[in-house]
Amino acid sequence: MSDVLAITEHRQGELRDVSSELVTVGSELAAQQGGELHLGIIGGDVDAFAEELSLEGVETIHTVDHGDEFNHDVYTQATAQLFGDIDPTTLLLPNSVNGLDYAPAVASELDIPLVTDAIAISRDDGLEVTREMYGSKVETTVAVDAEVAAVSVRPAEWEPTEAAGDPAIESFDADIDEDAVKSTVTGFEEVAGGDVDISEANFLISIGRGIEEEDNLPLIEDLVEATDATLSSSRPIVDNGWLPKNRQVGQSGKVVTPDVYLAIGISGAVQHVAGMKGSDTIVAINTDPNAPIMDLADYAIVDDLFDVVPALIEALE
């Protein structure tokens, strides 16, 4: 038919935000398609999750009571079976890290096209998906020439649905082939601990790949000292081992909301922005006027950090 099936996400007993965002994009799309929105919940405390996700715009919630945590083999099988049962036109999945781990497998198994990391979706004649390229410097539209398709949806791009609704809740008896489950989650580990908690700081000076070499870091440390700020960074700085993991801002690091976030030589990749877009005042120093961080900044200096930072230290003294 013309329905939408969206698969929700949870971790360690809690629904993840992207689940109620999928309700928003899913119900918009279902309306455009003249169909209904179905939600799939796989594993965990499915009844509690279903209650929490009884939101406006959801027609039916299908619960698959199998396992506690995400396992890509189980999710792939359960999603494919739900898809077969509901027969939707569009399958929506989260473009989260776990989404990266099963969305392509589901699409491949169902032999339907997959468009990843959507930031807008519409259906007119056919399905059209907007996505970014070249480190968010450009947007593209992708047309899907197929009856049915899967789309993975960028987290935090749509507002979550909060209004309550009254969907039917049905238990779906997925037939999981345990022999085909060839991966086992053995635990979780929290990294990025330590003495500094950048999420507590009210003034963060954050450094990115624009710093070029580890030997240039003392320049930034001088600025940090002159301002009594806290030092944080984008991912490559941590990947290179120049700063410890607990300094990393972003999707896989920390989410920060300081009064001032000063981004120096950081392009503003989506996974970085996920960690700092809630800052009160964002200032960017970058040689590239087209860097995506410029779209987010309240104040910007388009210039070489090696000129601006020494001048800034001087101006502060």
Binding site: F70, S96, G187, F188, E189, S252, G253, K254
Partner: peptide
């Protein structure tokens, strides 16, 4: 995973 959590998987 997101938020400084790693999943251990065999």
């Amino acid at each position: 995973l997101e938020g400084g959590i790693e999943e251990l998987t065999d």
